[in-house]
């Protein structure tokens, strides 16, 4: 089975090609590949896939940690990109357009799961409940990043997406705007609100944990 062979350095190079420093203009090699892919060149499309698949997978896994499901969504995203290549504006960069497809597919998947969960006889909603005060410290069994992940999940989707793309995945605000199809001013506002929401959610969690510790000490 074919495995990824590009080094992280190569990946970094691709990321820097897409960085805001190059003024949001697509690189020459990317233009060439996109042009060939639009004309039905499968190998060119394959090269685009290999350039972007790891980053797409990483972004999707921020929303859906399950590797298998995330990989399926990566494949679905590229398939959709291939089918809609004729709708892509070649004067723009391929990356934000691809990430928009991937993020939208991820949203669709999450909505489907939520809808299914609403009608299912048994749900796993209990996992997200507030910690039971009778438990000494609900964070005891979680490491820091898991705790942060739980707090992040409390933030509404539109704000969480901006936070994930900008702060965790390092997209510039103009790319986040392109991916989410919003203006840059909206993204800046959402970003500020999302960071504030994260802080408030974290502080709420801290207070709950302190309260639980006090209850434990009293009993």
């Amino acid at each position: 089975m074919w495995t990824m062979s590009e080094s992280d350095a190569e990946d970094q190079a691709i990321e820097s090609e897409d960085s805001p420093e190059n003024g949001g203009v697509p690189s020459e090699s990317e233009v060439r590949l996109v042009h060939a892919a639009r004309n039905g060149d499968n190998d060119a499309f394959g090269e685009l896939v290999q350039r972007y698949e790891r980053r797409v997978l990483k972004v999707i896994r921020r929303f859906i940690p399950d590797l298998e499901m995330a990989t399926d969504l990566v494949q679905e995203s590229f398939l959709r990109a291939f089918e809609r290549m004729d709708q892509f504006d070649p004067s723009r960069r391929f990356g934000p357009w691809l990430f928009r497809l991937a993020v939208n597919l991820t949203y669709d998947h999450l909505r489907k799961v939520r809808r299914r969960g609403r009608w299912a006889l048994f749900t796993d909603a209990g996992e997200d409940r507030a910690p039971d005060p009778a438990v000494s410290d609900p964070r005891r069994d979680l490491d820091l990043s898991q705790e942060v992940q739980v707090v992040l999940a409390e933030i509404p989707e539109a704000y969480r997406t901006v936070l994930i793309l900008r702060d965790l995945e390092g997209f510039c605000t103009s790319d986040v705007a392109a991916v989410t199809d919003r203006s840059e001013a909206t993204i800046r506002w959402r970003l500020a609100e999302a960071r504030k929401m994260f802080r408030e959610a974290w502080e709420r969690r801290e207070r709950r944990a302190d309260k639980a510790r006090l209850v434990q000490r009293d009993t």
């Binding site: 089975m1 495995t3 590009e6 698949e53």
Partner: peptide, 29 residues
């Protein structure tokens, strides 16, 4: 709070293993 959030950036659980992760291209193609 921001420093806490950034602990997720390099979360090893999220790092895609470049050696063992299969590319989607063969099945996609």
């Amino acid at each position: 709070a921001m420093a806490l959030l950034l602990t997720l950036r390099d979360d090893p659980a999220m790092v895609v293993d470049s050696v063992n992760t299969k590319s989607v291209w063969p099945s996609l193609s």
